[in-house]
Every structure is written in structure tokens, then in C-alpha cells.
Amino acid sequence: MSRPGIALAMHPGRTEHVLPDRLLDRLESLGRLLDREPLQTFADERARRLLSEMEILITGWGAPYVGRDVLSTAGGLKMIAHAAGTVKGLIDEDIFRAGIAVSHAAEANAVPVAEFTLAAILFAGKQVFRFRDTYVADRNRDRTHPMQRLTIGNYGRTVGIIGASRIGRRVIELLKPFNFKIILFDPTLSASECAAIGVEKADLDTLMRSADIVSLHAPSLPSTQHMIDAQGLALMKDGATLINTARGAIIDEAALLATLSTGRIDAIIDVTDPEIPEPASAFYDLPNVFLTPHIAGAVGLERTRLGEMAVDEIERYLTGQPLEYAITLADLDTIA
């Protein structure tokens, strides 16, 4: 039996550490790794040669669009293992209709996002950023000592999770060792299903009104666009913190910036809409905003989890086992 051809398609500058040598060696043991240098286009002669020989394609960040034109060249294509999160905007629906197995590594990317969120929640509860700014500005502790008497800290606080996604559920698990009350808004879950994962079901208004810290983990869909609006933000407690590691479009950002400008709430923002705010955006300047450049997901060595998950899926496929992280055409309507 001939060994299946395996090709890579991703941007090397965006995917360093995804497939270190040990994983490339493992791919060599599973099939014929046609070229260790990833494709960045499907239109040149090298790409046409590799596509004609491959059965398995590993994609990643910066991969060219996998459309119907790829099918005409890659007649033997049987599986795509995406060594990153969402496949939306990367893999055409015709690929699924052609019966090609598709897998993604969103579960691996969820790990660092959940870890980032846990750190953000703990820092928000303890008002770490405000202490830091005050201490650095004063260069003494005249104001930070009295701040310790405020009703801050992480004991007995209420954390509101919006969306029981794979990341939302991981965050819930990470929070369990702490003395938090966890409430969840997710219309797809019943009260008993929420109780089974250790949280209390709440409607969105109740969550926004009750939580000391609100963390967003819903997918970006037409139905969730601007689900956090001016009305919801107005319900938040004075001194509460909003954390967004999901997608910027979930929040009405004009309403968020208007609320933040009052100083009434704080925000930890890793994602915005547009992805990079305009240079004049108040996100950069407001003292009650901690802004990061979409780094909650896998960076640096964390990216190796993505490659490991993709190679594991390829091994399952080649040994006749079901894929653990398969994506179907129907899934595209609900995944992020």
C-alpha cells in the first residue's frame, strides 16, 4: 500500500513553532511529507505538483483559500487538518460537499485563551492594573495603602460567563478552585445542564447586572453581533470589569467606549472591531482599559499544541479511527 502524500499550507512567519522538527519527523513516519516548506499559494508550479500528489493537507494561519479550484488539481485529496482555530473563510463549502474530512485545532487554541482569561479575571478582581498605575505615578504608597481597604479582591465575587463555548467551559473549569460564584448566559443550555457544569443559569440582563466580572466567550455570528450594547453596559455595576477574548463584533464598541469614558467600569480587551483600532481610538488612551493585540490565543511555544492536535488527527485518520475534532458543513453555522 502506498504511503499517503502530505503537504503543508500556511504562512511560515505566522506559524513558527506549530510544526517543529519532531512533528515533521512524525509526519514522515505516517506518510510521505512532500515538502517541509509550506505552500503559500496554490497557483504556482510547485503547488500544482504537490497538490497532485497529496492525500492530506495541513493548513494553518496564512494559508491560501482552499476552494473548488484546489479540487481540480488535488484529485486525491481526502483530508484537511487545520492546525489553527476556525476554518471559516479558509475552506470552501464545496470541500465539505466533496466528502473530504476536515479537522481543526480550535480545542488546542482554547487552552491559552482560557488561561489568559483566568489571569485577567484574577487581576481584575484584585484591581492589579489600578494599583500598578497609581504606584508608578506616585512612586510611594500613600494612595495604594488605603486602596487595600476597598471592596476588592477575589473572595466571594460573581463572575459572569457569556457563552458555554469550548473556551467558556474551560474558563469555568479553571475558576472552580477559587471562591467565585459563576453565572452563565447561554440560551442553548437548560438550568439543569448549567448545574451539571457547576454554574447557575442566568439571562443576559441578570448576568450583566449581577456580575463583578463579565467575560465574553460567545461566537461571532449574525445573532451575536452587538449583543453587548448600551443597555447591557448600563446594567453593569460600578467598578465591574468587562473582559473580551472572543470577537470585537460581539460588543457595540461605540457604546462601550462611551461607557468606559465615564470611568464607571473597567475593561480588558484582547479583540476589537476592526481588528486593529484606529490610531486615534480611545482604547489606546483610557486609563481603565487594558488593551492587548489579540494575544490570548496561541503564541510562541503554545502554537505547538496546534500542530500536535493536527498530527494526532492525521494518525487517527490513517489508522481508521474517528476524528476527535471533525468539522462538518452544518457546523459552519454555529462555530466561531
Rank of each mutant, 00 (worst) to 15 (best):
205 D>Y: 04
183 I>N: 06
30 L>G: 06
153 G>V: 14
22 R>E: 14
193 E>M: 07
250 I>Y: 02
129 F>K: 09
286 L>M: 02
9 A>V: 07
114 A>N: 06
287 P>S: 07
49 R>V: 12
85 G>K: 01
253 E>V: 03
124 A>P: 04
206 T>I: 01
295 I>Q: 10
29 S>R: 12
111 V>S: 05
192 S>M: 09
237 K>Q: 12
99 G>M: 02
288 N>T: 05
129 F>E: 06
325 Y>I: 04
98 A>C: 01
227 M>E: 06
236 M>Y: 11
172 I>T: 11
141 R>A: 11
6 I>A: 07
303 R>P: 04
80 I>D: 04
270 D>P: 05
195 A>K: 09
246 A>G: 10
30 L>Q: 12
24 L>H: 00
85 G>C: 03
321 Q>Y: 07
201 K>V: 00
166 R>K: 03
109 N>S: 12
100 I>Q: 01
135 Y>R: 14
77 L>D: 14
147 M>W: 13
247 R>K: 10
61 W>F: 05
43 A>N: 10
129 F>V: 03
324 E>I: 05
80 I>E: 05
11 H>R: 08
62 G>Y: 08
192 S>Q: 13
84 A>M: 07
170 R>K: 08
300 G>Q: 15
216 L>F: 04
181 K>H: 13
326 A>W: 02
96 F>E: 06
21 D>G: 00
207 L>A: 10
258 A>K: 15
125 G>Y: 05
35 D>G: 05
131 F>Q: 08
